[in-house]
């Protein structure tokens, strides 16, 4: 695929913003519309844009890991977050929460559902990119 200068330049500036948006959507998912599915899809779309602009090879370099590794990590994380509740005697996948104090920064609730959502996020990125990059690569 011939590279377009406009696309390449635009991507250079768009990419960080889109990835930031992706993380933002993912993180606010528990409180406002967003979450692992949406955030993951935005990230996947961003990387496929990068692949259009710079070629699949460079996208794979940025990703460092093969997309299927992301799928595996995500599934493990989701599964592992469900196992946490077994240690307290609750059924599989029961949410467990821990309140973290960051002093002046405020309080933050960390819970296994967030880890689960991170797993979803990774699987969505991995699976979608596995498909798209494989196709773009020819």
């Amino acid at each position: 695929m011939r590279q377009s200068l406009i696309l390449a330049t635009a991507t250079r500036y768009l990419m960080p913003m889109l990835l930031l948006l992706s993380v933002f959507l993912f993180l606010r998912g528990h409180y406002l519309p967003g979450g692992g599915f949406i955030g993951g899809l935005v990230a996947a779309a961003t990387f496929s844009l990068h692949a259009f602009a710079y070629g699949v090879k460079r996208t794979r370099q940025i990703l460092r890991l093969h997309p299927r590794t992301y799928v595996g990590l995500g599934l493990l994380l989701a599964l592992g977050s469900g196992l946490v509740s077994l240690t307290t005697g609750d059924p599989f996948l029961t949410g467990q929460w821990e309140a973290l104090q960051f002093g002046a920064l405020g309080d933050f609730d960390l819970g296994t559902p967030l880890l689960f959502d991170l797993g979803v996020y990774l699987v969505v990125i991995g699976a979608t990119l596995a498909i798209l990059l494989e196709l773009e690569g020819g």
Binding site: L41, A127, I131
Partner: peptide, 12 residues
């Protein structure tokens, strides 16, 4: 929501 994502995967 999940159905949308799954049907995309199946479509692909």
């Amino acid at each position: 929501l999940t159905a949308i994502v799954i049907s995309f995967a199946m479509l692909a």
